[in-house]
Design a protein around this nucleic acid. Structure first.
Lengths: 107, 107
DNA sequence: TCATAAATTGTAAATTATTTACAATTGCAA
DNA sequence: TTGCAATTGTAAATAATTTACAATTTATGA
């Protein structure tokens, strides 16, 4: 009785989002960014993955994916990769805060 | 200029959900259901995947994952697999309808 | 134009993850 | 105990990803 999981409708699933961690192939399909490019961005430190150990497959969460989509948009607008990454930082903070508020609505 | 993608906040991402298609490993991590069990359910026709061709890796969308979670809950409550599947059908219809409403809010 | 750096892309060999198929095991009810 | 439902185990083959080294394309300033 300690936790309620009525889950009556999709109201919406922030615990689902929290568990959502996917591989590079899925991210590529979702975002339209080729795997090779995703690896390159990560190699440059523009994005990070949740990968446990070297050699194991890369893992990305919702925030990672969101970030890639934002960077992609800015690149299309003509920003450089570094400039895009810098600009996206602020947006990411807002997204993080929003997610936190929605998840730990403890008050 | 034909399509607007301001994407100002997460308001919330039903187009993201629409593109969200993941492999069996991810589903297993998300749901806590072992891959072997997921394959078994699929083999029995309880669930379906979006897999393109035989031999290729299985692909699941949000509805598939949601369905598995619901079935898992009912199994825990003591229902048989078939009974769980039957019961879940109704819930799935509602979820589908809700998703459709939220996605094609064309009116 | 030329040089230089940024950004992306190509690919081979090794590794990881998944598939299928056949089989064994477990739990439960008659 | 028997029989069925449900799950689990696993080997061999295949699919997908990793790393590493390299080539190519694109933008930008001298």
């Amino acid at each position: 009785m300690s936790e309620s999981k009525t889950n009556s409708d999709l109201s919406f699933d922030f615990d689902f989002l929290d568990k959502l961690v996917v591989g590079i192939g899925e991210v590529s399909q979702i975002t339209g960014i080729p795997p090779r490019q995703i690896r390159y961005w990560e190699e440059k430190g523009i994005i990070t993955s949740l990968t446990e150990e070297e050699g194991k497959n890369r893992r990305y969460n919702y925030e990672n994916i969101k970030k890639m989509l934002l960077i992609k948009e800015l690149l299309d607008e003509g920003y450089t990769l570094d400039a895009s990454a810098e600009k996206v930082k602020n947006r990411m903070k807002m997204i993080e805060e929003t997610l936190n508020k929605l998840q730990n609505k403890k008050d």
